[in-house]
Design a protein around this nucleic acid. Structure first.
Length: 249
DNA sequence: GGTATTCCCTGCGGGC
DNA sequence: TGCCCGCAGGGAATAC
């Protein structure tokens, strides 16, 4: 990394120019993921924590490639190519941490366990104490990391559970079924490289394919793939929520 | 303390 | 054709 430029329109979190000298000359040693956060580990010790928000994307382009609108950061690399961060809606963020303890402390307060690491008894305990809707519970990253609106809807559909129900209304079998469905839905979404509703593309510039597999999300009024009852849409936790009123009880 | 709602932000699509 | 408005959703802030 030999230079950094950024747009005048900042992202959600303020970027301090003071950190930039610490980044220059660094090499990205490793890339990690926690929930929806990406962590770029630099060889000199600092970390860049990135959230893509809704429309954030990284691309590597050759020098001289015209800069698209909403390109907020450009990292000039040793081979003269550019690592660009573009985010149309500016819901994304890039945060600098001088060391590992910084981001670990930050995320410790904001992120629960990964779905694959979440012990069944801990999940059951979380459900049992919550009077919130399942939808709100799934979107709350402190309960379970990495589930967004689309995957919350698809997970509830796969588990055949109404997202309007409260956490504590689920019995043990239903709770386990939901956890298993979350894992399966996320595994499938990763296999398909995510969901491209409008803007999303992966780092290679390819669109995801999971949007073609949706059973509930975005299918308001269309027949359920299992029982042909029209898919219903309600608003929960401030988000549109799609479910089959027949299959999901 | 727990829960619900609002805000930011921009592009797209529908209605007029 | 062009304008206006509502909708989409991530986390944070605010309200209840």
């Amino acid at each position: 990394m030999v230079s950094i430029s950024r747009s005048k329109k900042s992202l959600r979190q303020k970027w301090s120019k003071k950190c930039e000298p610490a980044l220059l000359g660094s090499t990205v040693a490793a890339i990690h993921r926690r929930g929806k956060w990406l962590l770029l580990e630099l060889d000199r010790g600092p970390f860049l924590m990135v959230h893509l928000g809704m429309t954030g994307q990284f691309t590597v382009v050759q020098p001289g490639t015209p800069k698209e609108d909403h390109t907020h950061f450009v990292f000039l690399l040793d081979n003269r190519s550019e690592l660009r961060f573009r985010d149309i809606r500016r819901f994304g963020s890039i945060t600098y941490f001088p060391d590992r303890a910084g981001w670990e402390g930050y995320l410790a307060d904001r992120l629960g366990p990964e779905p694959w690491d979440l012990a069944a008894q801990d999940w059951q305990a979380e459900l049992a104490k919550s009077k919130r809707s399942l939808k709100a519970l799934l979107l709350d990253q402190t309960n379970i990391a990495g589930v967004g609106n689309i995957y919350a809807d698809e997970s509830c559909f796969a588990a055949r559970i109404d997202p309007q129900r409260t956490g504590q209304s689920l019995d043990a079998e239903e709770g386990l079924r939901l956890l298993q469905s979350i894992r399966e839905v996320l595994d499938r979404a990763i296999h398909y490289r995510g969901s491209s509703i409008r803007n999303y593309v992966g780092g290679s510039g390819l669109r995801g394919g999971f949007q073609d597999e949706f059973a509930a999300y975005g299918r308001t009024g269309k027949p359920c793939i299992k029982c042909e009852t029209p898919i219903k849409c309600v608003r929960l936790a401030g988000r549109s929520t799609h479910f089959c009123p027949q299959c999901q009880t």
